[in-house]
Nucleic acid binder design. Structure first.
Length: 130
DNA sequence: AACGTGACTGCGC
DNA sequence: CGCGCAGCCACGT
């Protein structure tokens, strides 16, 4: 799978995250069959434009620790993400160090790989494409 | 080609 | 739970 397909798969999966549920970059990577590409899931979401259709609920993807990635000091990305999540009814708590946290026990969405449509042919081991 | 970077993870303390 | 460290992979310099 090339970069474009990877991005497409990521968006396809993220669009299936139910309302008021969140998952992690790493889990999205697992769902599309590339468990070591968690960082690239973040990259794919970064490339999103706000006017894509149908919309990609990027706000429902956070870190495996259940925290909203800060994107670096001086940026407001994490703050905006929290606002959108709370707007759809997800409870976001603020930790001592100011980081935003979502309780996976309540809001987490972690379906098994294979039970979610990734919009592409599943990765094949050594086999040539059909 | 080497080096640094990033919307990441898992593990140990 | 918070922090630091090593492993991870594609990309820009």
């Amino acid at each position: 799978m090339d970069s474009a397909e990877f991005h497409a798969a990521v968006y396809h999966v993220v669009r299936q995250i139910p309302n008021q549920r969140v998952t992690s970059y790493g889990h999205v990577a697992k769902l599309i069959g590339m468990p070591s590409y968690s960082r690239h899931v973040g990259q794919a979401l970064k490339f999103l434009s706000p006017d894509v259709a149908p919309p990609v609920p990027w706000q429902r993807v956070i870190s495996s620790a259940g925290t909203i990635s800060s994107r670096g000091p001086g940026t407001d990305g994490a703050q905006r993400q929290r606002d959108v999540l709370e707007a759809e009814g997800v409870e976001v708590q603020v930790g001592r160090t100011g980081e935003f946290r979502v309780d996976f026990g309540t809001w987490g969405w972690f379906p098994d790989p294979g039970t979610v449509d990734i919009g592409l042919a599943p990765p094949e081991d050594g086999a040539d494409d059909a």
